[in-house]
Design a protein around this nucleic acid. Structure first.
Lengths: 145, 145
DNA sequence: CCGAAAGCTGTAGTGTCTAGAGCTTTAGAT
DNA sequence: ATCTAAAGCTCTAGACACTACAGCTTTCGG
């Protein structure tokens, strides 16, 4: 049961990569992970190459890349050498998305802070500042939503 | 067509609140927005109270509250006075979620930055640093993914 | 009273899994 | 060789919060 076995069933792959069994089958279904060999009884038998590819996929998903982009990145990593431009473009675009999301969440954080601290949860004290804040958008300082 | 009309069809409500027609019907279907009166020909006719409630919902959604939580907040806002504690708890929990998400996105931003700047997209220059970074999780500085 | 715009219901699709039913295979112990 | 429990298989449906369409009916201005 060490990492040196040449072939493994889906459960072992799941354990090694931290990707759930169902998710692995899903990745195969949507064409991210190539279909592996099968045992005589039709069970999947994965090689180390599969494990590497799945690790790549998991890492990219953890970084928030969409499955579609991962498909492209995998294609790029398969076609040897060239086309690094495209990978760079995907990463930069994704980085921008992430920064954007952070900015939006920050302004959201500010408003939630304001709302949540206005009412401290005392029963009689407010009636209720949170509800009022949500009801009346005019109170908030946002420009863009 | 000013804001003073006492009753309006779904399209007018959509325009005034910035919520799409289909989304309004969806909110009715899942019990967020109470079913309005109907015209003789079975079309929805909304009152100003509906518009207010929908504004509340939209605001909360913009702030990222889940539909389920909004349902609770609406219930609280209906049962007059008391139960402010619960609204506070929901808001604080949500604020924590948001902060958590921000933290995760920040560390993600760091790594994407590192990856994207390692390879500048020159065709021959790398083969390819981005792909390698994704393939080899060991390179990244994260603790927790 | 005509025709275009807006409305209606109901169904299916989006993306990324997750969960379950109902069955078969495998691996280890006896 | 046989038994059994764990793990695997396929297929379907569900989760979230919508969105989009098909095919029909109502409304409203001219």
């Amino acid at each position: 049961m060490n990492g040196l076995e040449r072939v493994m069933p889906i459960g072992a792959l799941a354990e090694r990569t931290g990707v759930k069994v169902e998710t692995i089958r899903y990745y195969e279904q949507v064409g991210l992970l190539p279909p592996p060999e099968r045992s005589e009884g039709n069970q999947r038998r994965y090689s180390r190459r599969h494990a590497e590819r799945l690790a790549f996929i998991k890492h990219a998903r953890d970084l928030g890349f969409a499955v579609d982009n991962i498909r492209t990145l995998l294609r790029l990593s398969d076609t040897s050498g060239i086309a690094c431009d495209e990978a760079h473009a995907i990463s930069v675009a994704h980085l921008e998305e992430v920064r954007d999301k952070i900015a939006r969440l920050r302004s959201l954080e500010k408003e939630l802070e304001r709302i949540a601290t206005t009412c401290h949860g005392g029963v009689a004290a407010c009636d209720c500042a949170i509800i009022e804040a949500l009801a009346d958008h005019g109170q908030c300082n946002h420009a863009h939503h």
